[in-house]
Design a protein around this nucleic acid. Structure first.
Lengths: 223, 223
DNA sequence: TCTTGGATGATAGTAACACTATCTTTGCAA
DNA sequence: TTGCAAAGATAGTGTTACTATCATCCAAGA
């Protein structure tokens, strides 16, 4: 089976759709590599252009600025992850089993998905851990939200929130618990690898421990 | 009673101690105002100098760059908060009551503390919500951690972790739960005010709801 | 076959940002 | 009174974050 996955992106995220051209795809591919390598702060369109072999102006024809590109990458990731969640929980009847599967998907290193050609999901996952929150932790968040730039994130959160309600329809905080496990899946991972004393996983640095912590957190809460 | 609170800062955080001079104190005072007003990305030493009525070079004599200044402000805040936590939970015997008090301190708007003259804790709290994680979500995190720049944050986390253990010595994830409630006290607040559909507090935007959510989360987990 | 328009390349330019350097002035302290 | 450190004043450099313009190239349509 050779299926290709096409994620529809909100067209306010870009000036010209990067999926519609070779240069556009290169921008996505190389920006993921560069941001991963040097971090978002050190990432510039000049360096990206040099890396690709095009010019700065060329990049600006696709994205307004690097912050928009970051929002694009995060939006792409959340959309892809929502698809993964839907796919991987399909046909699971027991809502608790379903929720465990989701936690695993959130907190475990993703394998590179070959049905998307110019995105390395594994590296993108690393970027989301370190840079993901910077997409919305800005003064522009409300404006950007009005343009629906964070819809994929909110959709995933709503999906998980509903799964929580499936487990316990009386639980009072499904959405907050959903956003908590999404963010903590990433933060605990970052802490484990960089500031281990903030976690209980410092010894073996094992993602499975994060999964166990989150499962304990969630299932204790919804009981 | 007129007591003044002096927080001892790691001297790797600055080039010249801002608490030792008028100009230094102005830098702290005005940087808090400017970052709060325009956000950390738009904040520059040029603008800060103009705001204070000094020159760019003057600021650079105190702080290496704006990122170091941000780490300074966050470190100050966490130290101050640890003091508040210690003070406000003093003489409370029941560990559960203690922990509830801590959650309230974390998730509730702080009043400006008049025992610190040139820091407005209330505004600083807002900054920490939006910009706090940017202090450590960088490529430099390990180096900065080696210089103990995040010690106040880690100390607070350890303190709360120990309170959790006081409630239940058998709980497996005290440190991760501590870092979770610290971060979530802020994230849920940010979401409530900016991306409300990620929370269950969209209607009345009441911080007391966040407190209830966190209490439920914590006490369900440690049972 | 010609042409036309859209994508790209090449080049240039500007304002702001992130510093560094140097020299002068000020104020207080030995 | 001299001396020294903090602060002010000014200048300069390389980089970042764009914007503008003009040339080229290529594929689709007339």
């Amino acid at each position: 089976m050779n299926i290709q996955l096409k994620i529809n992106m909100n067209d306010k995220l870009f000036i010209r759709d990067p999926e519609q051209s070779e240069l556009g795809k290169k921008i996505i591919l190389h920006s993921i590599q560069l941001i991963h390598k040097n971090g978002f702060e050190a990432f510039t369109f000049k360096k990206l252009a040099l890396d690709i072999g095009t010019t700065e102006a060329g990049i600006y024809r696709y994205f307004e600025n690097k912050h928009r590109l970051l929002i694009y990458l995060t939006a792409w990731y959340w959309s892809w992850l929502e698809y993964q969640v839907t796919f991987q929980t399909n046909n699971i009847k027991d809502p608790a089993v379903k929720l465990k599967q989701v936690i695993k998907l959130l907190a475990t290193t993703v394998e590179d998905d070959n049905s998307t050609l110019y995105v390395n999901e594994s590296i993108l996952h690393q970027i989301i851990i370190t840079e993901g929150t910077k997409a919305y932790l800005t003064k522009r968040v409300s404006e950007d939200n009005k343009d629906h730039l964070f819809k994929p994130y909110k959709d995933l959160c709503a999906l998980i929130g509903n799964m929580i309600l499936e487990c316990n329809p009386d639980y009072t905080y499904p959405k907050s618990l959903a956003s908590t496990i999404i963010e903590m899946a990433h933060f605990q991972n970052f802490f484990m690898n960089n500031l281990p004393s903030l976690t209980d996983f410092g010894q073996d640095k094992n993602e499975a421990e994060i999964v166990k912590f989150l499962e304990d957190l969630v299932f204790s809460s919804i009981k």
